[in-house]
Design a protein around this nucleic acid. Structure first.
Lengths: 131, 131, 131, 131
DNA sequence: GTGGTCTAGACCACC
DNA sequence: GTGGTCTAGACCACG
């Protein structure tokens, strides 16, 4: 329905599901109060085990992104939008900081780094246009 | 000679050792032909399991950064400097690409990303001056 | 006649309905011989599934609190008042015992527990005055 | 080694394990820095599935009560003592509040409730002396 | 129909 | 040896 999973690629499946949902919420593709597809449904579509999806959903509940509606499945929680947007920014900022720090440790100076960023940014934009 | 092994951080210990050596070579702290301390020696200094160091050294040999000297342990290989410097750049470039891609997927536009980069870069520079 | 169904709180909906009825009987809001609103009526008022109400009514019949009147729905049973009042006390006593036991297991001594009880009791009284 | 599980009785097994560990930490039976028995070990002793224990341990990590020591299992985290003691008190306070509120709603007045508490408390103390 | 729990057993990375 | 992930399949409570 709204996501794709990479079964290889280091990241655990349940983690990928968690991220997909959080990103969907942050991007307002999923809005607070909206129902989320059932565990079995997602499992079927992604061709993975329901337990794996259930684990992701459990995690999302612990993170206050989803909340149960008794006997009716799960829905996006009220404060989920804020949580997901904040988390997304934090995540990117943290990773960016790591990379830049590593770059500095490699004795690249600021201008070289900026150049790298620009190049990658341009490339990413091109790819985006194509898709 | 080696410092900063963090047993808690997500990165595997043997990976950390590998990186330390590669960075030392790239930064010319270790030069081609130079002997490298023995497995037991490193293990003692870092207070980690010799098996872990052995694994790191095995990896470094597979990467053509270290080479055996018959009966005398290991030394930095001839082409190691180039390999390590290239690898370092590649690593940073690859990570940078990942982060920027993720940022784009989060619907941050180019200017916002550039702003984030600038901010983190400034901060990194400040920290560097202090230390 | 009924109020306060909380679809989010841990307690199952049918359980909440059961309790509401029992409390109403214990508090003499519902008296023996009195007719009880129909499943559909209650379901409509509480905006919950009729199956859920039906299940609650089934439970109440099993507990001898409601009894069927041929072709006329359900009414409060003769011995219901005694049953509900006794049950209410038992319930509270049982729970209280659980909590106190757990408190003892946590190595809180008697005086600390009494203090806690007093504090909570005062607070509960205050809240009651307000409402 | 240090706990017993009740395989019946509503509470999920993994939850029971979580509590046992938290109580052990709060009661200083397990101290920060101390190793915790392995997943397989606990599973064997309690005669339950390792996955169930693993789930409990995962939960405890999420709660910052346990922390991993790479390749060496799990140990009690630094701040665990404070966390567990605070949690324990909160838990008891919350439950106590619920019960007392329910008692008030049942039109028991303060003195009757205090009497109940005293009776249960005395009984609990007696039981404790016996054991 | 929904999610939650538990079991059983396989495979992986790390130390 | 350690924990982590995933699959498969059974059973339960709830609506």
């Amino acid at each position: 329905m709204f996501f794709a999973i990479d079964p290889a690629g280091g990241v655990p499946l349940y983690e990928q599901v968690v991220r997909q949902v959080k990103f969907a919420v942050a991007g307002q593709v999923l809005k607070p109060g909206e129902r989320v597809p059932s565990v079995r449904e997602v499992a079927r579509q992604l061709a993975i085990n329901p337990n794996t999806v259930a684990r992701a959903y459990r995690q999302l509940q612990a993170d206050d992104v989803l909340e149960p509606v008794r006997g009716m499945g799960l829905q996006v929680a009220g404060g989920a939008l804020g949580i997901c947007q904040r988390e997304r920014l934090d995540l990117i900022r943290r990773r960016l900081r790591e990379v830049l720090l590593e770059a500095r440790q490699s004795r690249l100076d600021g201008s070289e780094i900026r150049e790298l960023v620009e190049r990658e940014l341009d490339q990413a934009e091109k790819e985006e246009v194509q898709s």
